[in-house]
């Protein structure tokens, strides 16, 4: 009996209503950066309607506003976070090189002992 109650409680929690991200008085426009910047990802992509939890009309208006803001250079088309990823990959290669050097040192010690 307790397990069924727990399941019921869990199901209740998943159906909780969350506050809408767009209030009734807000105007969806390319000038309102505070409102628009909530609906783009870190890379600058437009989030999907399922993630934003918006109606069809709101999603369409926001998409138009984001694209207009991109033209005016208020929002980026793509964020340049890939450069950091490249630098990280180079760091990894340097660590691999260090490991190879250590292996060589070990071999040289062995050869000395053999002689």
């Amino acid at each position: 009996m307790k397990k069924s109650k727990r399941l019921f409680m869990k199901s209740k929690r998943s159906f909780r209503r969350r506050l809408p991200l767009i209030q009734s008085g807000d105007r969806i426009d390319y000038k309102s950066m505070g409102l628009i910047s909530r609906f783009i990802s870190e890379q600058g992509k437009i989030l999907s309607r399922c993630e934003n939890r918006l109606t069809l009309k709101q999603q369409r208006l926001i998409t138009i506003a984001i694209k207009q803001a991109r033209i005016l250079s208020s929002l980026p088309f793509l964020n340049n976070e890939k450069q950091f990823e490249k630098s990280e990959s180079t760091a990894r290669t340097t660590t691999l090189r260090k490991k190879n050097i250590e292996i060589k040192n070990y071999k040289s010690n062995f050869e000395l002992r053999f002689e």
Binding site: D26, R27, I28, K57, Q58, L61, Q68, I71, L72, S73
Partner: peptide, 13 residues
């Protein structure tokens, strides 16, 4: 540098 013209819509959104 850059410019854009648009019509102002008369809706609440």
């Amino acid at each position: 540098i850059r410019s854009m013209s648009s019509k102002i819509r008369k809706r609440k959104y």
